[in-house]
């Protein structure tokens, strides 16, 4: 998957957890999940679990704590896909 394809999928994963749909529509790799998309930190765990299920990967906690913006999410997801 390309980074753009992962980003497009990620948008769907994130969507249930943000009310800021305008910002979601225009997300890029620098978009911060908490500061920009106003996602509650408790929902970051949901996003990680949904991403695991969506991409059939496992994200451990050392990786999860780096998933603060869209770019770092894509980094981790693409690494995990490559390791499959």
């Amino acid at each position: 998957m390309t980074r753009q394809e992962i980003l497009n999928e990620l948008k769907k994963v994130i969507s249930p957890y943000t009310t800021n749909k305008e910002m979601l529509a225009g997300i890029n790799e620098n978009t911060d999940l908490i500061k920009d998309l106003k996602i509650n930190s408790a929902n970051l765990v949901d996003i990680i679990i949904d991403a695991e299920s969506n991409y059939d990967i496992e994200i451990d906690y050392d990786d999860a704590d780096k998933m603060m913006n869209v770019g770092s999410c894509i980094d981790i997801i693409s690494q995990k896909i490559a390791q499959k």
Binding site: D46, I49, A64
Partner: peptide, 21 residues
């Protein structure tokens, strides 16, 4: 603060979620 109405109880009881906390 955690609002319990926003929490997915069934998901909380699954290992993928609780093992991340």
């Amino acid at each position: 603060i955690v609002s319990l109405n926003e929490i997915n109880v069934a998901r909380t009881q699954t290992e993928p979620l609780y093992s991340k906390i």
